Simulated scan of single mutants.
Amino acid sequence: MTERGDLDLVIVTGVSGGGRSTVARALENVGYYVVDNLPQTMLVPMAELAFEAGEPARRTGMVLDVRSRAFSTDLTGAVRDLRERGFRPKVVFVDSDPDVLVRRFESVRRSHPLQGTGRLSDGIEAERLLLAEAREHADVLIDTSHLNVNQLRARVEELFAAPDQRQLRVTVLSFGFKYGLPVDADFVLDARFLPNPFWVPELRERNGRDEPVSDYVLGQPGAEEFVGGYARLLEGTVPGFEREGKRYLTVAVGCTGGKHRSVAISEELAQRLRGAGLSAHAQHRDLGRE
């Protein structure tokens, strides 16, 4: 007999201009029935309708934005109500740096929904305060500050494409410290203690996916201990995260520019985690930015 907890229910919220529409389209691409601009007061009735619909709506996404919050601002309470009724929703929060949001709104010459008669930055700050609790309790936090549309779509599809939602999925994300820390990272690893291939002329224009660069990085003293140690750490902690209901884990690996060391380490770490039976993939935030 089908239970409400069997419904694959994803609730998408986040800041205006953060990329919710892109997330919605990506969910549709991997088989979700997506309802956009849904008022929070309709979360429970919509979930019940999806449950009654059976297989056609077995994977349902609901997208909320600031206009829907005119009906209610208690997203956390609505999600709690769903869980008390037997549903197991996953909340995705889409975020971005305020300065990036300003540029996005200015590029399309739009005002912020909460701006009123104030400045654009006032609307962004008001919304951030309004959403603070929802952000804190989200199951998945996606920072789109450094992601283009295609990268965001790929991230969502990687997270939600597989039908089996029970196993924790690990994203090993390379990045460059000079571009800032990923705000959605659960672990941050620093690979800058390794010699930088940038200073090796024949490796400078290559990246960590290329075998010569990978061999150079992984062959340095301490590299094996670094990768092996963190692989064992993650293998040991993943079961605990799964018991606590966490489904997505982001391990960020940084070097100076996110091109050589962090990329090579991320690929190797993801490979070792897969070899240990974990669901893991490497993603490279800043590769190609230089």
Rank of each mutant, 00 (worst) to 15 (best):
E3P: 01
R4H: 12
D6I: 00
L9D: 02
L9T: 03
L9E: 07
V10H: 08
S16D: 11
T22H: 04
T22R: 04
A24W: 05
A26I: 02
L27F: 05
N29G: 13
V30T: 01
P39H: 13
Q40Y: 12
L49E: 05
A57V: 00
M62F: 13
M62N: 02
R67Y: 09
R67Q: 08
S68I: 00
R69I: 00
F71G: 00
T73W: 03
T73G: 10
T73F: 06
G86T: 01
P89F: 10
K90A: 12
K90L: 14
S96W: 04
S96G: 10
D99Y: 08
E106C: 04
S107K: 06
V108L: 14
P113Q: 11
P113E: 09
G118F: 00
D122F: 07
D122A: 01
D122L: 04
I124S: 05
I124E: 11
A126R: 14
A126W: 01
A126K: 13
R135C: 12
D139S: 11
V140K: 07
D143P: 07
S145M: 08
L147W: 05
V149K: 05
V149G: 02
L152M: 11
A154N: 05
A161R: 10
P163W: 02
P163L: 13
L168P: 01
V170S: 06
L173H: 06
F177N: 05
F177W: 15
G180N: 07
D184R: 00
A185N: 08
D186P: 08
D190N: 14
F193N: 03
L194T: 01
L194G: 04
P197E: 05
F198N: 11
E202S: 14
E205S: 14
N207I: 01
N207F: 09
D210P: 06
P212W: 04
V213A: 11
S214I: 00
D215W: 04
G219K: 08
G222Y: 02
F226W: 07
V227I: 15
G228T: 03
Y230W: 15
Y230F: 15
V238H: 10
V238Y: 09
E242L: 04
E244K: 01
K246F: 03
R247S: 10
R247T: 05
Y248A: 11
C255N: 04
H260K: 09
V263W: 15
V263R: 07
I265A: 06
S266H: 09
Q271F: 14
R272M: 11
L273I: 07
A276Y: 13
A276R: 13
A282H: 05
Q283I: 01
Q283S: 15
